[in-house]
Design a protein around this nucleic acid. Sequence first.
DNA 1: CGCCACTTTGAATTAGCTCAAATTCCGTGG
DNA 2: CCACGGAATTTGAGCTAATTCAAAGTGGCG
Lengths: 267, 267
Amino acid sequence: MFNPARTETAAPAMTGFLATRALAPVGKAVQERAGHERASQKLVETQKLLQERLAPQRRVVHAGDVIYQSGERFGNLYILNSGLFKIVNLSADGREQVVGLKFRGDWLGFDGIAGGHYSCDAVAMDTGEVWVVSYESLLAACLAEPALLQVFHTAMSREISHDRDSLMSVCTLPADARVADFLRYWAESLAERGMRTDQITLRMTRAEIGNYLGMTLESVSRALSRLARDKVIEFVEKGRRDVQIPDVSALSAFVQRCLAPAPALLQ
Amino acid sequence: MFNPARTETAAPAMTGFLATRALAPVGKAVQERAGHERASQKLVETQKLLQERLAPQRRVVHAGDVIYQSGERFGNLYILNSGLFKIVNLSADGREQVVGLKFRGDWLGFDGIAGGHYSCDAVAMDTGEVWVVSYESLLAACLAEPALLQVFHTAMSREISHDRDSLMSVCTLPADARVADFLRYWAESLAERGMRTDQITLRMTRAEIGNYLGMTLESVSRALSRLARDKVIEFVEKGRRDVQIPDVSALSAFVQRCLAPAPALLQ
DNA sequence: CGCCACTTTGAATTAGCTCAAATTCCGTGG
DNA sequence: CCACGGAATTTGAGCTAATTCAAAGTGGCG
């Protein structure tokens, strides 16, 4: 639930697609940038369509704010305009699992459609802005504007595909590679959204990363140390929350190295 | 792709919701059965609605038939009327991962909506019947009949929730518990669909189960042996593909036992 | 009847976990 | 501005669950 005392109305100046331009991409490879520019442009158009057709309520959230909780009655979907959010599954016996990380452009709340109640928690990890849309009004708007329906279905479809990729990562990659793949995905997500990727801030503890990736916090720490030793990433001096990724493709190469069967040191 | 030589038109007698009644539930606990009856009834109504409004093309498939392949142009969604299907993700570097198992009532193809191409393979593991619906015609029908839209969204929502549960299972459960939880889910899925659950046939090899659960085939075999030793399951004599589950809740209890911190053997 | 694919079981190995200790960071209050 | 304390992180050492490797065992099917 939103903490009412902390709920604010978004200041118009920092919202909408205008804000995006201030954080223009700083990528290196020109053709990659072109792809990301396209994706970013598409995102901006989508946001515009949503804004015009739905006039969603905008809410500013802060780290720790709960957007919705497991068991709560379903009614709204949430479109993320900025900030970072985590999706947490809670089992009957108390196990807790981070099952998703969401950025600008992602939607929250799909899990509630089927059963009429949300089946997980959605929590802000950072200051951000969410657009609140009731499912009913979304459906109504979709009837008038089929393009909106396509946007909605696309968001769900992407979520399904990404969840499957997560499962594959957890099931087939060793710990070090999983961390590298996680950083790669994060960097690419930022790039697609038109944000800089050379230096990213992990707004989570090692324990949260580990939980999401199915390993212990110590394993995450060791993996990051190895990545730094191999110069695939670099820690920004003072503080280990900020990570520099000089070259995203080096992360993919690291993953492949982890998967390579034999090191073949000599000969 | 369907093998054209093997594609048949479904015989009317064995299709539709009438066929369901022949496989009425054989559950034990009365209240559980009531819940499953309800779910089963809902499923039947949904299938009826789809049939009336969409008049989908019906196809009989056999073990090994590929419903769609990664990279193939998206166009159709598939509603499963009977049979068992697996969803396989393939990574660029050749890793292969079973990311889903689908039964009667489930839908296939959602992953294709976002990118215009399917992003995984869907393969039949058994003889079954799928209803083929083009995404376009589905959307058109949804405009005329909003209940259909709800059915469609519910199917996607359930898929998202279940994918998250899978991730949680892989990330938080030890190998033995994962196998037990897998069997529990399978049995419950069958029960919800009005099929008998006391004796189920695993239509997959140990290797496939292991891949799906993120462990080796040997680990699956050992886990099943331990489950049998603990009388949680029982192998039907002659052949180890058929498993008897006298009491589904014993599987949940086994999972909890695996999670218990200390065995506390003495004192 | 015999082949072949699948399964089971054992033994040795190892990746990742647990436990523990030292270090760093950051907010808070003097 | 700096000292302090708690939380997060790093790193080491030993341990364990699960893997790999290997060898039987079993069943289905031509």
